[in-house]
Design a protein around this nucleic acid. Structure first.
Lengths: 186, 186
DNA sequence: TCGCTTTCTTAACAAATGTGAACGAAATTG
DNA sequence: CAATTTCGTTCACATTTGTTAAGAAAGCGA
């Protein structure tokens, strides 16, 4: 039921119904089981995904420790665009924190869609911008705020996520230890 | 003397001498005085720059406080590509910490170059990738390491920058107070 | 150059955060 | 369902980082 996706696409650029139908025809439905990877470090990201339901976590590993850098939920795009576009090995991981239903578009199909209607490049621009902005915000938060402020801000800005992500991942995302987060929650 | 620039371009993709000459003909020399802005929040980034000499700081403002998120030096590209490509208002600032000589390419000239040789899009891909990677690394460092580790890592990875950037900007970049950085330096 | 402003350092103390360990709750597995 | 593992909480204590204030050093402009 890609109703929301259609609205998202329409809001990005003026696409005709024919364009949208062609775009939709290239999507594949796909489910990731909780705990499985959508993208693994070192691999090339072959898909641009659209999350219908579920929850994904973007993270880097650091001596084996997982440091989340972003999360994706319903109606978000999901990909690593540099790797997707340039076919370079990914430097980050994406995995499912819940069973996640995706509509995915392969790089080859993206090329086909793009050759028919170049305006679909706007999808990538839109996605890049959103992820870049949210990313630099988070970086500045880490540099600027103390642990309590970071946690309050996270609760205010992402109330939808607080109860869906394990505490230890929230703690790692906020750059604090799980015990300290537990203390803050009192 | 854009010798290094030419090598950089050649290493990115197989460009002919004609391509490169056309590219070079569209560049404008430009100097930013220490303290002046290359890009201001809210404005549209109209140029892709190549730093010949000098030092630029990318930063966000936070209740008037400047939080650096990245630095650019000799032979780095300088731009805010989302803003440059999509003509959207920038959410960050770029200013010169030293007098800085740039070769800059306007968005209009980039279009012309692209229409003659589409492979020049690789320049942007290359730049995007580098900045995204360095950015996520820094974010993970902020979340994962303590102040001392962050400072040591910065010294090891960017010895060329340590003595060119004011301490209080380094401190802000690393997410600590200037006094604490001073303490670490002993 | 002199005087002024900004930046850097130092110190004592306060506050925040990390550490290690223990325990119960919750989730997972077979 | 029971057994096992993982996760969240709490505590006491150690360590790190922030705060405030003051003076030294460096940079800047007249």
């Amino acid at each position: 039921m890609p109703g929301t996706l259609i609205n998202t696409i329409k809001s990005i650029g003026g696409f005709s119904d024919t364009d949208i139908d062609f775009f939709l025809s290239k999507l594949e439905e796909f489910t990731i089981i909780k705990g499985d990877q959508f993208l693994q470090e070192g691999q090339i990201c072959r898909y641009l995904g659209y999350i219908e339901s579920g929850l994904l976590m973007y993270y880097r590993t650091y001596d084996g420790i997982e440091i989340p850098t972003d999360f994706g939920i319903e109606n978000d795009w999901a990909s690593h665009l540099n790797s997707f576009t340039n076919k370079t090995p990914s430097d980050l991981n994406i995995k499912a924190l819940e069973n996640t239903r995706l509509l995915k578009l392969s790089a080859e199909n993206f090329e086909k869609i793009y050759s028919v209607q170049p305006k679909f490049i706007l999808l990538k621009d839109y996605y890049t911008e959103r992820s870049f902005v949210s990313h630099t915000r988070h970086t500045a938060d880490l540099a600027m705020l103390n642990a309590k402020q970071r946690y309050y801000k996270f609760m205010q800005e992402r109330p939808d996520l607080v109860n869906r992500i394990p505490q230890y991942y929230i703690a790692a995302y906020l750059g604090i230890k799980p015990q300290s987060l537990s203390r803050l929650r009192k």
